[in-house]
């Protein structure tokens, strides 16, 4: 379980996060929803210690992050984190060199699934294919937790569908996934849990199926209530 406890973050005088708390379970897809600039990316960066939080605590399976944690949690930012001049093959080799959790078989499987070519340079890939290569590098790690920042934004519809397929496959099964998005429509029935953020706090945290079952409301219904109300 990933526990975010009362986390705050200031950029200069601006309070981006003002006491954010939520949990994300293993085996579930948790979705952080909020308009742009609400601090979703900052939260993900905070979880993997890419930016320090001003206060609060973040625990992964009850422990604070150490260098070993990077073998069990993978963060896939919204832009690929490899040198543009690298070929897909070289990027994969880089990951294999540094991560014990790199699963080469799965990487090859993803390569076929996304129809990527090993010899292509990252700089020569289309936007959609860059997003897929980026996803490949994260998904091929045998980690318990996956964090994805806006995996669906700014790419063509076919790439989106292909990426959405990942969420219904064994590639994320049994892992804990946190994704951020400002556009819920396409993935509404893919997610287990929603954390609605606004003005640096958590407005509402709920399980999607339970919300439908008990209150008969879709995620969008709840968002409408929360943001208009």
């Amino acid at each position: 379980m990933i526990e975010v406890k009362n986390v705050t973050k200031k950029f200069g005088r601006k309070n981006v996060l003002q006491g954010v708390s939520f949990t994300a379970n293993k085996g579930e897809i948790t979705c952080l929803i909020g308009v742009n600039g609400v601090g979703k990316t900052t939260i993900l960066n905070g979880i993997v210690n890419l930016t320090p939080m001003t206060s609060g605590e973040i625990l992964i399976d009850g422990e604070k992050l150490t260098k070993e944690t990077y073998e069990k949690i993978a963060f896939i930012p919204d832009a690929i984190t490899m040198l543009p001049r690298m070929r897909v093959r070289e990027a994969m080799q880089f990951m294999q060199d540094f991560y014990d959790s790199w699963n080469n078989e799965r990487a090859e499987e993803l390569l076929r699934f996304f129809k990527l070519k090993k010899e292509d340079r990252i700089s020569s890939l289309s936007k959609g294919n860059v997003a897929k290569a980026n996803l490949l590098l994260g998904l091929a790690l045998d980690v318990d937790y996956l964090l994805m920042d806006e995996p669906f934004s700014g790419i063509d519809i076919f790439s989106r569908e292909q990426i959405a397929d990942v969420f219904t496959s064994h590639l994320v099964e049994e892992r804990g996934v946190i994704i951020t998005t400002h556009e819920i429509n396409d993935i509404e029935h893919l997610i287990d849990k929603v954390v609605l953020l606004d003005d640096g706090i958590v407005f509402k945290e709920f399980a999607t199926e339970e919300m439908r079952e008990v209150e008969g409301k879709s995620v969008v219904d709840v968002m409408r209530e929360v943001y208009r109300g």
């Binding site: 897809i29 959405a164 397929d165 219904t168 064994h170 994320v172 099964e173 029935h189 893919l190 287990d192």
Partner: peptide, 17 residues
């Protein structure tokens, strides 16, 4: 369960349920 999740484009947890 896995195939169903994949075919219907739903979360594996939902298929399981």
């Amino acid at each position: 369960r896995r195939e169903l999740a994949n075919q219907l484009k739903i979360n594996p947890n939902t298929a399981q349920r």
